[in-house]
Computed example of a mutant assay.
Amino acid sequence: MKNKFKSKSLRLRYWNYQNSAVYFVTICTKNKVHYFGEIVQEKIHYSPIGSICYVLWNEMQHRNKHIILGDFVIMPNHIHAILILLSDNIENNNHLGTNRFQNIGKNSLSSIIGGYKSSVSRYAHKLNFEFQWQSNFYEHIVRNEYSLEKISQYILENPTKWSKKYNNDL
């Protein structure tokens, strides 16, 4: 039973997540609990934890020169965002991602999202709010302008689709 509790990485093995790229990221709450607020008439109404998420997401760009934030939306139980990672790394692409730990370093996508999740959790717990993240996050490497436009549209329309699917309040 070696590595019994080791979760399989969701990251592409041959991609270096420290290099410049555009990512579509989804971060979920544990068990899809609605910690962040509710959708009413196609708009998110933040809970205190949702407000913390919003503020800390926007602060990321000011704290890290390697990040540009694109469109994002905080939904009741998840966040969708476009994050542009800028890197000073100029590497030989012949051995990208062959080392599993290569994608964990400073200014990697994983370290940035991990830092964000940790900050939100810390603030929520300081204020005595019950809160937990899902242990991982999902990402999609945006490879062209068309894909970026479709993803941006999906992000911006997410509250409306949620409202139609779950609330029937239209």
Rank of each mutant, 00 (worst) to 15 (best):
F72L: 08
E42V: 08
F5D: 10
Q18Y: 12
T98I: 15
P159A: 03
H78P: 01
I112R: 08
E38V: 11
K150R: 12
I155Y: 00
L148Y: 12
L109R: 05
D88Q: 12
G50P: 06
K65Q: 13
K43V: 13
L56G: 08
G105E: 15
R11N: 14
I49F: 03
L127V: 07
V25N: 00
G114D: 04
R100K: 14
R63D: 14
Y14H: 11
N89Q: 13
V120M: 04
L86D: 06
S119P: 04
S119G: 06
H95W: 13
S163F: 08
L10A: 14
I44S: 14
Y123H: 12
Q18P: 11
L148M: 13
N16W: 04
L170N: 02
Q132R: 13
P76K: 01
Q41I: 05
W15T: 13
K43S: 12
Y154T: 04
T26S: 00
Y35H: 14
D71I: 13
W133A: 04
Q153E: 04
Q153N: 07
F101H: 10
L127R: 14
K2C: 05
E59A: 13
Q61S: 07
K165N: 06
K106T: 11
S121W: 01
S135I: 09
A124T: 03
N136D: 10
N94S: 05
N64R: 03
V33D: 06
Y166R: 02
V120H: 05
N31I: 10
Y154I: 00
L127K: 15
S121C: 08
Q102S: 12
F24R: 00
S163A: 09
G37N: 10
S163T: 10
H80W: 00
G70L: 01
N107G: 02
T160Y: 04
K43N: 13
C28Y: 06
N58D: 13
E59R: 08
Y46K: 09
K106R: 10
N31M: 07
Q41S: 11
N3A: 14
N168H: 12
N94D: 03
Y138R: 01
A21E: 11
Y116N: 07
R13W: 11
G50Y: 05
K30Q: 09
L56T: 08
F36C: 15
L83N: 05
N3K: 12
H62S: 07
L83V: 11
S119Q: 06
G105D: 15
I44W: 08
D88K: 12
N99D: 07
N64L: 01
F137E: 02
I112W: 08
D88C: 10
E157N: 11
H140I: 08
S121P: 01
M75Y: 02
S152H: 07
I112D: 11
E130C: 02
F72T: 04
I79W: 00
I155F: 02
S111E: 05
N144A: 05
I84Q: 03
G115H: 02
K106N: 05
I79C: 02
L156C: 08
F24H: 00
G70M: 00
F5Q: 07
V142G: 00
Y146E: 15
V40T: 15
G70A: 02
I39F: 07
I104V: 09
K161F: 10
D71P: 14
Q132M: 15
S7I: 11
E139K: 07
N16H: 09
K117P: 01
